[in-house]
Amino acid sequence: MYAFDYHRPTTARQAAGLLGKDEDVRLLAGGQSLLPMMKLRLVQAGDLVDLNAVDELRGIARSPRSLTIGAMTRHAEVADSPDVAEAIPALAAMASTIGDPAVRAMGTLGGSIANNDPAADYPSACLALGATIVTNKRKIEADDFFKGLFETALEPGELVVKVSFPVPAKAGYAKFRHPASRFALVGVFVAKRSADIRVAVTGAGANGVFRWLEAEEALKARFIVKSLDGLVASTDGLNSDIHADAEYRAHLIAVMAKRAVQQATA
């Protein structure tokens, strides 16, 4: 790791103050992606602002229509939360498949979406569920938040405070894991909220998470697995690498989408 100055605020306001507008300042959430990248010297931070003592950024709140999760809430807390299991069981199930148990004990929702790894699970959940990302400055719709590989709409000085998920009528998530890294080669999150049906794909896109609009249209006729029969995802814009070429990923998108709908309608 390159050297950095360490800061440990206890409030979100202090954290935002320390973050300032300097791009050389980085926020440390659970650290399960950032620390490995810093160890490899792929990321350099002049100042590191550790959010682990900011208790107000943690917690899960449920209202009849939405579920709000603090940015520093750990994956394990989301996976084990009775409120999440009741309101959006697909989200709890998804959180329980991130990394491994020790990674889930540290990794956070805010860290995952701010990093926007193209194979991360949470971006697909945010996009499919139509989540609203609440920062210290504004509210950002998930559709406007994820901007590409490791790119988000967050501006200098802006930090994720919480994410609000509207409670869907039905939702499901299916992923095909890379056998060694266990990251999603392809993951598909589907959600139905009255007439609004969204299908979000992670792991496959060369530009990160995206919505599969043709599948959304097909599911609007009837929200059942059969509606996706014969539908093939386009290979345009899909990743091709040693793990899977674009054709294979396109095939997996259709298979995972069906499995996700099956879960949602089970």
Binding site: Y6, G31, Q32, L35, P36, A102
Partner: peptide
């Protein structure tokens, strides 16, 4: 690289990978 788990310890009662947590945290 937080894959193998040889470094797992408990932090406040939870198993974590101590190669991927800052001591300061």
């Amino acid at each position: 690289t937080s894959q193998c788990g040889a470094c797992v310890v408990h932090m406040d009662g939870h198993a974590v990978k101590s190669c991927t947590v800052l001591a300061a945290t």
